[in-house]
Design a protein around this nucleic acid. Structure first.
Lengths: 247, 247
DNA sequence: TGTAAAAACTACTAGCAGGTAGATATGTTT
DNA sequence: AAACATATCTACCTGCTAGTAGTTTTTACA
């Protein structure tokens, strides 16, 4: 709609009530990172119900910024990539970015949050449902998280490499998400061992090794390479089960 | 000796012949990255035989620079870390660095080369000796490379994260080393499968998964953490053998 | 079509960081 | 001790980049 960022929609309509409600969350014009991951639609998460068209516009633009920045941060590194680079990638100008993000670091925080919050959501979804066995549950978590790190490849790599540039507050917030994820994975494996489905003689920190398998994928996987994402994920699941001694 | 970089030696002696010979390799004062990894002593590789005392001084200072830069690049990232930071870490000045390295990127190249060239040396050493079985040979390679990535933790992480900032030439040179390493590991595993010692139904790219296990260690291992390096390495070997189906 | 509000832009600043020229200090040899 | 060579430093330049103030353009709606 504006300057290369075309909002995909039909008619514009003002919804004052909804806008008022939502401004608590969106905090225009300083959209903070937390909100980004939750409120954006197509790329990052489902449309927030009850959001006004206007806030959807904002979420859409925020998303496009995060997407473009993620790609450039991935290629050139966070510190070497200028906001002018990001802006020109989107055919907008730097002050445009500043009307959606407090500063450069806030864009990074939004990127870092994508991968980990999606992984956490998937994990909690799997844990909430019954899968018959601990083995099946582990396989399902690994399969889904594997899918995320492949789909969000650039986000994940940027997160891994550039997290040190986050402000203290953002760093703590994102680390909390990460710890919650790690903790739940660890628990899941402990339960599998206790149930007798996984071998008892495995490394008590086996979750770390499985995490390595998964975390390393985004650095070597190439969408244009020989192996399809599906193939990689199947072998990943096989490798994870073998590490857990649950073949 | 000068300004915080104390060369640990007794007397100074001039050895014109040796100096002349060596200047081919050392190329004073523009020591390039290749030479660094080969010519430096205590930290990176054994003393080059026949080197003059003078060239040892140079190698020592180059080493100290690489060490300090590696640490700061690890903590702050390559692009965010200034050469003034590196210089003040060593209590020297920026032009001092420039008399040992062509530019900032050359320091990065030296860092990147440490881990991969050591790993390659270890791999070729293991392959040159008989280990009785393919299983034992794989275990030995994994054990030794695991030790390197732990000992050279910061170097390896900087390499993984910052390689994109290398000049095209340095990039190509270091990537060649890396490819040679990957290729030989792949061959080793193929031989193990062919011999019947490893399972046949494993992922043909299993070396990539084992590589992930190893490459991920430097990002989570902490020398001050609960687990000793030896313990981590033993579990690493166990995990690698299990992935190869060679328990 | 006119008008007010929102969105985006142009043009700028201040500070920083890579890199260098020339001065100074240190060591060596006779 | 003088003279030369080497090593290191001081002081600077230049280009770049995060962030901003104020102006212009676009949109929504009467």
């Amino acid at each position: 709609m504006f300057c290369g960022i075309v909002v995909p929609t039909g008619r514009h309509r003002q919804n004052d009530a909804a806008e008022g409600e939502f401004s608590v969350t969106i905090r225009l014009p300083w959209v903070d990172a937390m909100t980004v991951a939750v409120s954006s639609d197509s790329l990052i998460s489902p449309r927030a119900p009850g959001a006004s068209l206007k806030s959807e516009f904002v979420a859409f633009k925020v998303n496009r910024i995060v997407e473009a920045a993620s790609h450039l941060f991935y290629e050139r590194g966070y510190s070497s990539c200028t906001l002018d680079n990001v802006a020109s990638e989107l055919s907008v100008t730097k002050p445009f970015l500043y009307s959606y993000f407090r500063n450069k670091e806030a864009i990074l925080a939004a990127i870092c949050e994508v991968g980990i919050s999606e992984a956490l959501a998937v994990l909690e979804d799997v844990l909430a449902h019954d899968h018959g066995s601990h083995r099946a549950r582990l396989a399902e978590v690994v399969r889904k998280v594997g899918r995320i790190v492949i789909d969000r490849q650039e986000y994940v790599v940027v997160y891994q490499r550039e997290m040190k540039h986050l402000s203290a507050d953002d760093y703590k917030r994102i680390l909390r998400l990460r710890h919650s994820f790690d903790h739940q994975i660890g628990e899941m494996i402990r339960e599998g061992v206790a149930s007798g489905e996984f071998r008892e003689d495995i490394d008590p920190f086996i979750a770390v090794w499985i995490g390595g398998l998964i975390s390393w994928i985004p650095t070597w996987y190439s969408a244009s390479g020989q192996r399809s994402a599906e193939e990689v994920i199947e072998y990943l699941v096989q490798a994870a089960l073998r590490l857990a001694g649950a073949e």
